[in-house]
Amino acid sequence: MISENSDTASNLPKLATVWLDGCSGCHMSLLDMDHRLLTLLEQADLVYSPLVDQKHFPDYVDITLVEGAISSEADLEKILHVRAHTKILVSLGDCAVTANVPSLRNPLGVNAILERVSAGGLPKQPDTVPLLCAHARPVHTAVKVDLFVPGCPPSADTIFLVISELLAGRQPDLHAITRFGL
């Protein structure tokens, strides 16, 4: 399904970021790398992201970073599509890696959560919001993940290292600088 044909003239590797059920903190951390963003953008094209104006996920992306757990049917559909069009998929941050805070609802069940958060009883799903899955779950339980970057959120330094090492064709060694929760 992956085609290397690009619709732009640039020959730079293609980079994307995706936001599922997370607080956007991982994306904030990405922005936190300041001027180093410009360094990275000289080495890769950011072709899809909540940070850029691009509605559709491209046919081919070299590296995609995913923030957030899979919590709804829409998240699931999205990640399956992203996986099919991505060479290297990275679970970025604890929500993607462990389901983290979104998973707090898991032992309680969907109905209990909806009754609690939507006034006046259960909303009829699907109406305008996507159907919730039974559990908020880690990305790797639905699709193959090539690299795990734990952290809540991973630091800007960590994300910079991840992207620059992957762009250089190397597998980054993250053990010393990442762990669950921090």
Binding site: N100, V101, S103, C152, G181, L182
Partner: peptide, 10 residues
């Protein structure tokens, strides 16, 4: 159920 980021012992 371990959610380290919001745990007292993180």
């Amino acid at each position: 159920n371990h959610v380290c980021s919001v745990c007292v012992s993180n």
